[in-house]
Amino acid sequence: MIINHPLLGPRDSEEFVYLGSADLIDRPDWESRTVADDFHQYQYIRENIAGDNRELWYHEQGDQSWLLVTRNTLTHEIINVELAQDVSRSMGRGK
């Protein structure tokens, strides 16, 4: 499987570590009134998607960047690769 890194070009998936759903970017607000439910949802509840899944991959044996990879779980086709940093900032998180 080849992941087309936005900065480095095509790289073998051997260089990466898989983390899981991209939902993990959206960490709930710890001061929210519904914090227990929010964190339960954040930590445990996942859709088991048969199709395009947005997931986090870490380029451990490369530039140590986090990527948001959209992958089809049925065909393993990689549809889109973005820097998680950019996605996170566009969601209004971080600096």
């Binding site: 480095l8 790289r11 073998d12 044996q61 530039d63």
Partner: peptide, 19 residues
């Protein structure tokens, strides 16, 4: 090396970290 080392692609001065 899993990278494409074609001399026209991995040109002189190119550098990469891989496995």
């Amino acid at each position: 090396c899993p990278l494409d080392l074609d001399p026209d692609k991995f040109t002189i001065g190119s550098v990469a970290r891989t496995v």
